[in-house]
Amino acid sequence: MSADLHIRASRFNAFPADEYNRYVAGHSAATPYHRSAWLHATEQAYDHTGWVISAHHKETLCGVLPLVEVKPPIGTSSLVTLPFCDLGGALADNEEIQEQLITEAKALTKTNRVKILEIREGGEALNAGSDATRDQNKQSIDALPGSTKVRMLCDLPENSEALFKSYKPKLRSQIRKAEKNGLRAELHTETGAVELFYEVFAQNMRRLGSPVHSLQWFQELKAAYGEHMLIGIVFQADKPVGAGIVLLGGKEACIPWASTLEEFNRLAPNMLLYWTLLSHVCDLGYTRFDFGRSTLDEGTYRFKKQWGAQPYRLVWTEYRSGMLNLPGNDSNSSGASVASQLRPLIENIWRRLPLSFANWVGPKLRRYITL
């Protein structure tokens, strides 16, 4: 390592945000989650401490690793890059600097007495088959377990007209179906639209049996991302029946959350919602759309595939006490197995909670669930 290379860990609120954001904006592997806005919202909404591992060559920033320290009242504390989303790993000028950033993150876990370091990164594209004539750098989906989580990415053409023409007739008819059913979609960038989104999102999370993020979380995201956060709302008359959030960064747009009200799904609000968001970011000049995480061959995977999204590896690496935690070596695997068996029961109980109570207690739990 060069003697002029300096690696250090800094509290996020003490690191120059402008310097950080300039580096992220200029890095080809950066995602919208890498923006300082994600760390800022996490601190403001949930009071988790943000960290930046940085590398400087002389006085020039040449690598960053954003981290969030999550300390639940009960259980194991962790450093995650990044919580509440799919990825946010190290950005660096080269692999050597990237490795040094992770080494420093391991040292930070010891300093802060944190047991788990979780690095979430994106990987290569996956093939839909094992044909030897395909790109050898792409792993075959056939070789992966059915439970594998993948990141679904779609390249966007030059404008929304070309995008619409690229869709199969069935998909185009489903988009038109929503409009024929009397639904309309609106795009918003103002803060007030967060509450319209949350009205739909919170109901859907309760239906799924999952603790909901706080309203403040989304308000802080909007305040931090500003015009780089779009909110799509689908209405039947004046009632919001579908809603989604898109974050923008570089040439990439991502959709971390989208929800519809189940009783209106026969009207296809999800089709109109996604088309509205996709067509808008396409016309803005964004060249890639991140549909988010899905399990191979499950419903959301197939839904995203029809829009042209292709699967990419998600590489989530966990270190416990500084050592790589390989699959099958987790000392808590028996506890995880019990939790998976109890999950259907817990979800069923959660669905029966009054919405107001679920919205009150949900965020108190959700803030410590880093997925």
Rank of each mutant, 00 (worst) to 15 (best):
M229S: 01
K239S: 09
L267H: 12
G250F: 12
L248R: 08
R207T: 13
K222N: 12
G209C: 07
Q236L: 13
S210T: 15
K239F: 05
R207C: 02
W217K: 04
R206E: 08
I231Q: 09
L215I: 14
S214C: 10
W257H: 14
P240V: 10
W217Q: 10
L230V: 09
A237C: 06
G209P: 09
L215T: 05
E263D: 11
G242Y: 09
P211T: 09
K222L: 09
L267T: 11
M205R: 14
G232N: 04
L215R: 13
V234N: 04
I245F: 02
K222G: 00
A224K: 10
G226M: 09
N204P: 06
G209N: 05
G209Y: 09
I245R: 01
K239Q: 14
V246F: 12
C254M: 14
N265W: 06
A253F: 12
L248N: 08
A223V: 13
G232Y: 08
G232I: 11
I245G: 02
P211F: 10
V246E: 06
K239V: 10
V234A: 00
F264Q: 11
I231D: 05
T260G: 03
I231N: 00
R207W: 01
V241T: 01
S214H: 03
P256F: 08
A224G: 08
M229A: 12
A258E: 04
N204A: 13
E262Y: 10
V246I: 15
G249P: 03
E263V: 11
K239L: 12
L247T: 14
A268E: 12
S214W: 10
L221W: 04
R206T: 03
L230N: 07
S259F: 02
M229T: 05
P240D: 09
A258R: 06
F235Y: 15
H213T: 00
N204I: 04
R206L: 13
A243V: 00
A237S: 15
H213C: 05
G209F: 07
P256I: 03
L261H: 04
A223E: 14
A258W: 11
E220T: 12
G249Y: 01
V212G: 01
F264R: 07
R206Q: 15
L248M: 11
C254V: 13
V241R: 05
Q216N: 12
L247G: 03
M205S: 02
L247R: 05
G232C: 14
A258H: 05
N265P: 01
L215S: 08
G232R: 02
L261Y: 02
W217H: 13
E262T: 11
M229I: 04
A237G: 06
L247V: 13
G250L: 12
L208I: 10
Y225A: 09
Q219F: 05
Q219C: 07
G244Q: 09
M229D: 06
